[in-house]
Write a protein that binds this DNA or RNA. Structure first.
Length: 569
RNA sequence: GGCGAGGUAGCUCAGUCGGUUAGAGCACUGGCUUCAUAAGCCAGGUGUCGCGGGUUCGAGUCCCGCCCUCGCUACCA
């Protein structure tokens, strides 16, 4: 048995997260974690908000809010969204409030410096006197030195598309205040990625298996790697350790340097809360740990290259990522999610009207696993109606209501010989049965969802073939045996359902008269004849209710219209 | 510009190391059934596998060229 340390990308505390983030980095991780737990693995699921960086300070100041309050608001907002989706981290924190975050981050910096993986460089950068800050390239506007187009951004000209050096823009101005910035010298530390690549990371990456998007992106980057600055001239962030400053003030670790260290410091926060201050080492410095980073594709360089380089470069026996199941992007009805263009699904309204677990399942079933994908209302309706309500929900009600009416609401009886016969029919003649969990472990979430639905469809075929409504009149014992078998299958479905839709699974479990958590018996082995039944005959069933409500066409059309209306303003 | 991914049925997509008549779901049509949330089951496909070449006994799959779509291009998360 391995130990799994699972992380989801730390959401940046500067704006709302949407379905795309959930589908890409949080929901798959939650499903993965729930499955591993049912399989008896030792798992820790870590996440928190990423709370430093220039964008946060600028927006907080524009709103006239202090930084800690600003990020606290987003931290709470994110948590609310995760709660509504049923995404349950073992620890949820934030890089500005996690107790030992600064300590860990500074320690990484010191160790990397001591091991010769940092370089100090002095460069000239544009400084805005009015805003009292060095300007990130994107905050510089000016005239493109190549094509004369204005305004061009400091990083790229929107007209000719060429890469620009902000310092070479003609007539530069600060995007925030409009004043002309001046060039000032500043000193920063750079992470020596080429050296780390040559020392170990290049080989490590080449010898490990990766998702194709990760291998493609990083493989390409490795060929032309530059040292990367990891400090900034700012107030908000983890201070550069004082002994490095030599009198200079106001330097902090670059947000992308300290953010992933949050995975470590938050693990330590959790362990400390459990009374084991050094317990984090068991997760981070024991080679039996499998470190799994769930992220969107925008985070690939950091999780598959920069952070591993840091982890290795400190020479403290940190484990390196075992898997980086990076997803692509999830769009909304043909366009990118966009807060500014109002192309969004307001979460409050969504959860007032729709079942959170149905949403979970649909996001899993349409996840951008290998290519960008999208949420469309039509697809959502199709998943809810065809897969969840018709195939799965209706299976439960057709079987259980029948039993309520004709078998006193108890699991009907079956004898050993009939078990053998019906096992054969169900398991061998009613369609292909797969293990959704096997696909989840391979990070094939869409296929896992598909397999789960297919497993439910098998039972519909079984019930139709055996036609218990006819048997009831001709052979009541056989009728009971058929319904018994259908109940057993429902119990199996409830367990298979649990990682995807934990509450629905629990309800189905209760409908079958089962006490305790549906997760308690663990993840089911693939059913084999004579080795899968668990229900004692005569168990009283619970109250039968519909698991999933169907969505009608008008309602869906209304949502599409509302989405477009919001975007029109 | 560079890099990457993709272009397969009306729609969404799956197709592993090249190997039978190219598959699934949805939608649609017909039949069966009546336990169930008007649910279920069975049956139904003439698809230039983006275009053009090439390699091969054999190409959706490999190679070359072209067209189209999208994303990324690491300093802004």
């Amino acid at each position: 048995m391995s130990r799994y340390l699972v992380t989801s990308a730390l959401p940046y505390a500067n704006g709302p997260i949407h379905f795309g983030h959930v589908a890409g980095a949080y929901l798959p991780a939650d499903v993965y974690v729930r499955l591993l737990r049912m399989q008896g693995e030792d798992v820790l699921f870590v996440c928190g908000a990423d709370e430093h960086g220039a964008a946060i300070t600028i927006n907080a100041e524009q709103e006239g809010v202090d930084y800690p309050s600003y990020v606290a608001r987003w931290r709470a907002e994110f948590k609310r969204t995760f709660d509504r989706f049923g995404i349950e981290f073992d620890v949820w924190s934030g890089t500005s409030v996690c107790p030992r975050h600064a300590e860990f981050s500074q320690e990484f910096f010191r160790r990397l410096a001591a091991n010769g993986y940092l370089q100090k460089r002095t460069t000239e950068q544009l400084y805005c006197v009015h805003d009292a800050m060095f300007l990130p390239d994107r905050y510089v506007l000016g005239t493109c030195p190549k094509c004369g187009h204005a305004p061009a951004r400091g990083d790229e000209c929107p007209s000719c598309g060429s890469w620009l050096d902000a310092a070479k823009l003609r007539e530069p101005s600060c995007k925030l205040c409009g004043n002309a910035p001046e060039l000032r010298e500043t000193t920063h530390w750079y992470l020596d990625l080429p050296k780390l690549r040559d020392a170990h990371i290049g080989t490590w990456f080449a010898e490990h298996e990766w998702k194709s998007n990760v291998r493609g992106f990083i493989g390409n980057m490795l060929e032309d790697l530059q040292p990367r600055p990891i400090t900034r001239d700012m107030k908000w962030g983890v201070p550069v350790p004082a002994e490095f400053l030599e009198g200079e003030e106001g330097k902090v670790l670059y947000v992308w340097f300290d953010a992933p260290i949050g995975y470590v410091s938050m693990t330590a926060e959790l362990c400390a809360a459990r009374g084991d201050a050094e317990g984090w080492r068991r997760w981070w410095q024991d080679p039996d740990t499998r470190l799994v980073h769930f992220i969107g594709k925008d985070n690939i360089p950091f999780h598959a290259l920069v952070f591993p380089s840091m982890l290795w470069g400190v020479q403290q026996d940190y484990v390196l990522p075992w898997a980086v199941p990076a997803n692509e992007f999830y769009n909304l009805q043909g366009r990118k999610f966009s807060t500014s263009a109002n192309w969004t699904l307001p979460l409050d309204e969504f959860f007032e009207s729709y079942d959170a677990e149905a949403a979970r399942f649909h996001l899993i079933a349409s996840m951008p696993e290998t290519a960008d994908s999208e949420f469309t209302w039509g697809d959502f309706q199709s998943t809810v109606n065809a897969s969840l309500a018709d195939t799965i929900g209706n299976l439960a009600t057709r079987v259980l209501r029948f039993i309520d009416k004709h078998f006193e609401g108890k699991v009907p009886s079956i004898d050993a010989a009939t078990c053998v016969e019906l096992d054969r029919v169900l398991l061998e003649e009613c369609g292909a049965i797969g293990d959704p969990g096997a696909h989840v472990r391979e990070f094939r979430f869409r296929r896992a969802a598909e397999t789960f639905v297919a497993n439910a469809a098998v039972a519909n075929v079984f019930v139709d073939r055996l036609a218990p409504w006819a048997l009831r009149k001709t052979d009541p014992e056989r009728c009971a045996a058929v319904l018994n078998t259908a109940c057993e299958w429902l119990a199996l479905l409830a367990r298979w359902m649990a990682p995807f839709m934990p509450h629905k699974a629990q309800r189905l479990w209760a409908m079958l008269g089962q006490a305790g958590p549906v997760t308690a018996p663990g993840w089911p082995q693939p059913p084999r004849p004579g080795a899968w039944r668990t229900l004692p005959c005569g168990t009283p069933l619970g109250e039968v209710e519909g698991l999933f409500a169907k969505l009608d066409d008008e309602r869906i059309a209304g949502e599409v219209a509302a989405l477009e209306a919001r975007a029109q303003g």
